[in-house]
Design a protein around this nucleic acid. Structure first.
Length: 139
DNA sequence: GCCAACGTTGGC
DNA sequence: GCCAACGTTGGC
């Protein structure tokens, strides 16, 4: 089991929209970055991820689960781009902001802290546990 | 709204 | 294959 972080602008695709899709889940489409795509290719069904809102909120707001492995992105004919499907698992009790991550030395190496532009990021098991603790949820 | 950082593109 | 130019992203 591996852990990830999915970043989205809330006015493009928000946590609420993700929740509304229920267990059917939704394609994480529109990614046009090789690093992010490679991360998605590495995902397995059942992997967990954080759902992060960029821009104004800059906070982790929920937990998602991979429910379909990488497949061609339906929003493009370019076969270089693939995406996975994810479904909402549960919201956080306390949103974990970017600032909180930056302030915690245990998260100093987190990709979110060091390369906030990457839209699909790996999260280590240790980082997962720390963030879940801050969020007030079970890992 | 600005600007820095990063990734991609295309000319050579 | 290198590198300059450009576009996009996202924090501030």
């Amino acid at each position: 089991m591996q852990y990830w972080l999915f970043k989205s602008e809330p006015n493009t695709w928000s946590w609420d929209q993700q929740v509304a899709k229920g267990n059917a889940g939704e394609e994480w489409d529109g990614v046009r970055n090789y690093q992010a795509r490679n991360n998605m290719r590495a995902m397995k069904i059942g992997d967990r991820g954080f759902f992060y809102h960029s821009l104004k909120e800059k906070a982790i707001v929920g937990v998602v689960e991979v429910c379909a492995e990488a497949h061609p992105d339906s929003t493009t004919d370019d076969d270089r781009w693939e995406c996975v499907d994810i479904k909402a698992v549960k919201p956080v009790l306390t949103p974990v902001t970017l600032q909180m991550c930056k302030d915690d030395p245990r998260l100093a190496d987190m990709v979110l802290v060091n390369n906030s532009r990457l839209s699909v990021q790996p999260v280590t098991e240790a980082e997962w546990a720390v963030v879940c603790q801050m969020a007030g949820i079970d890992p």
